[in-house]
Write a protein that binds this DNA or RNA. Structure first.
Length: 300
DNA sequence: CGCCAGGCCTTAC
DNA sequence: GTAAGGCATGGC
């Protein structure tokens, strides 16, 4: 086992594993006390991730981040939890808006994640009409049933399945895992990637709206799921997924941003949220409203 | 029991 | 291009 620390002074603007991992962006992590998404913080709990054949554990300590892993975890953590983002700069660049400012103040230390593209696409196909706790249980089930085993510290962990591994699943099997009508979407999208017809990572080099359009070719991927994949795995910090919570916020607080179509409304709220880092703003507002930190007023 | 959850698909206009 | 209806499942 390798161990190490990342000192606080290398985390510009702070970092909260709890807020970052339990804010509905990433469904690949587990928590050592099993209380993921319980709404309860546990300062001593380890967060664990199996990725690219390695296992990483991390938790906050007084002086920064402590990690234990099958390998040198520092570069993995830096990349996947975006530890090099300067949160102070991002907060300073956010628009002058009361809801946005309250969300940033209430959840300081929340960072965007940078998960693998295929994993994220599948996770958000599962997310349709589903609460975050259940999305997490679906992704857990996929990893447990189809992912490669990794041994670490006397336990067995499961990587997220590769496209080929997931393409071997049947619709019936995934329905039995509780995926419901999303089961055939997952199987077919996995098959498309495994067969080389397309790959979500192809979107990375495209202009933002072209990238979103590209991802909708996958079954079960509409504009909203595409935006989630772009924001949480492909580096499009300007992407603003229009989910139920953001739509409620638009209806009650930014009604002029409702332009009817997804594309036009997306452009309007992206502009309202500051453009370049609008997706960062969205993630704070989403978490703020979803967790009930403040109520969403009905439209006036 | 009804309603809702980080929506998408098909079909009809 | 936009609108309506169907779709699995579990928690409240």
């Amino acid at each position: 086992m390798e161990t190490g620390e990342i000192p606080s002074d290398e985390l510009a603007g702070g970092f909260s594993p709890y807020l970052t991992i339990e804010s509905g962006q990433t469904y690949r992590w587990t928590r050592s006390d099993g209380e993921l998404y319980s709404g309860r913080r546990a300062p001593d709990a380890w967060y664990e991730l199996a990725i690219d054949g390695e296992v990483v554990r991390v938790r906050s300590i007084e002086t920064g981040l402590e990690w234990r892993s099958t390998t040198d975890a520092a570069p993995i953590l830096r990349r996947r939890l975006r530890l090099d983002d300067d949160l102070d700069r991002i907060v300073d660049a956010a628009p002058d808006d009361p809801l946005v400012e309250r969300a940033f103040d209430a959840h300081r230390g929340l960072r965007l994640v940078a998960d693998p593209a295929f994993d994220t696409l599948i996770s958000f196909i599962c997310s349709a009409q589903m609460r975050v706790e259940r999305i997490n249980s679906m992704v857990d089930a996929l990893a447990r049933e189809y992912g490669t085993e990794i041994a670490f510290d006397g336990r067995i962990y499961h990587d997220f399945p590769t496209p080929a591994q997931l393409a071997r699943a049947t619709e019936t099997e995934l329905r039995d895992l509780g995926l419901g009508y999303r089961a055939p979407y997952v199987v077919e999208t996995a098959r498309m990637v495994a067969d080389g017809e397309a790959h979500p990572a192809e979107a990375r080099e495209m202009p933002y709206e072209d990238a979103r359009e590209y991802l909708t070719r996958f079954v079960g991927v509409g504009e909203k799921v595409a935006d989630c994949a772009l924001l949480f795995s492909l580096g499009f910090d300007e992407a603003v997924p229009l989910d139920t919570w953001i739509r409620k916020a638009i209806a009650s607080r930014y009604p002029e941003c409702d332009r009817g179509s997804y594309a036009a409304t997306s452009r309007a709220i992206r502009d309202r949220f500051g453009g370049e880092y609008a997706g960062y703003v969205q993630t704070y507002v989403f978490h703020h409203l979803r967790t009930g930190a403040e109520p969403v007023e009905p439209p006036t």
